[in-house]
Amino acid sequence: MHFGAEDLLDVRFAAEPLPLVELCLALAAWQRTDRPGVFARWRRQVARELPSDARPLLHLLRPDGDNPAFVEPPVPDLDAALDAVREGGRQLPYEDLVRAASRTRGGADPGGWLRGLWEQDREAWALLDRSLRSAHAALIAPRWREIRQSFRADVAWRARMLAGHGIKAALAGTHPGARWSGTTLAVPGPPDFETRLGGRGLTLMPSAFWTGRPLLAPRPDGSHLLVYPALTPLPLVAPAGADGSLDALLGRTRAAVLQLLTDRRTTSEVARDLGISLPSVSEHTRTLRAAGLITTERDGKAVLHAATGLGMDLLRSGG
């Protein structure tokens, strides 16, 4: 992403999560296989909960998050977002549906549903509306409190990083591999593309479900939306709320890991002291390290972790 001076002056956070964007990312995350230590149990739960009338969406929504833009409008109200889907469908590019159909199993278009959308078939659009409503009721509505908690915690943490370290650090923190070269932010991984933001603004939106590299999407006003994984993914958000501000930000177990690492400890010591598994410790330390809150180094066969200055500041501010 190529930033001009106007772009760097016009970076803001979304006011709240976007229901259909989160729904599409949830269904994409369900089809992914990364981060099994965090999402495996949630994926099994979704397999049981997802209604049959929501499954046509899987022909549109893919694990890499490269979804047709019309089905995930950046609108904060669900009913208004569903209206926006239908309105966007009136100018639906045929290429979007060709791409979606070509990426289904065997390149099939089950029942001609995707073609029916392009041809403005009433029944095809009614099926899409039912599928979106059903999937939202099953996956998003029951978890909305936790989704908002994850969203707000990430925004609060990243705003603090912005205040203390600047906009470049806040943006680079959206992905462990993100690197700045002048005013260009590069993130590794396919597909390769370049975007010049053109001074029209960039809105940041952390997602409680997304696990891949940041996704960039144009908005109707010409600006862009950057969706990235929230610091605390949905499965690690305390369902009933957390007792302290740091627990609310990081999740109770991850906050406890950071607290332990005010003194250097090995992975095995953290697992022993908290009574959790080694893979769980590795998952938590990987996320804390990507956020710049801890460092990790190898000493012979041991792997040692310790809180950074930023991590210590966060512990002090969080009580």
Rank of each mutant, 00 (worst) to 15 (best):
H2E: 12
D7Q: 01
A15I: 13
E16W: 15
P17M: 14
L18M: 15
C24M: 12
L27P: 02
A28L: 12
W30T: 07
A40S: 06
R43P: 05
Q45I: 14
A47Q: 12
S52F: 13
D53C: 04
H59Q: 10
P63R: 10
P63E: 01
G65F: 07
E72R: 12
P74K: 02
P76W: 04
D77N: 08
L78S: 07
A80Q: 09
G88I: 01
Q91K: 11
L92M: 12
Y94Q: 13
A100K: 02
A100S: 02
G107V: 03
A108P: 03
A108D: 06
L117P: 00
R122T: 10
E123V: 03
L127R: 13
S131L: 08
S131Q: 11
R133T: 00
S134V: 05
S134D: 01
H136D: 03
I140F: 14
A141M: 09
P142Y: 15
R145Y: 07
R148E: 15
Q149N: 10
S150L: 13
V155R: 03
A156D: 09
H165P: 01
A169C: 10
L171Q: 04
T174A: 02
P176C: 10
G182P: 07
G182A: 10
T183P: 04
T184S: 05
V187H: 01
P188N: 15
P188V: 15
E194S: 10
G199I: 00
L202C: 01
P206W: 05
S207V: 10
W210D: 02
P235N: 15
V237Q: 15
A240C: 10
D243C: 01
A248G: 12
A256Q: 04
L258K: 03
L260S: 08
L260D: 09
T267H: 03
V270K: 01
D273Q: 09
G275W: 06
S282E: 08
T285Y: 05
R286G: 03
R286N: 00
L288W: 03
A290C: 06
E297L: 11
D299L: 12
A306C: 06
T308H: 03
L310V: 11
R316A: 08
S317Y: 14
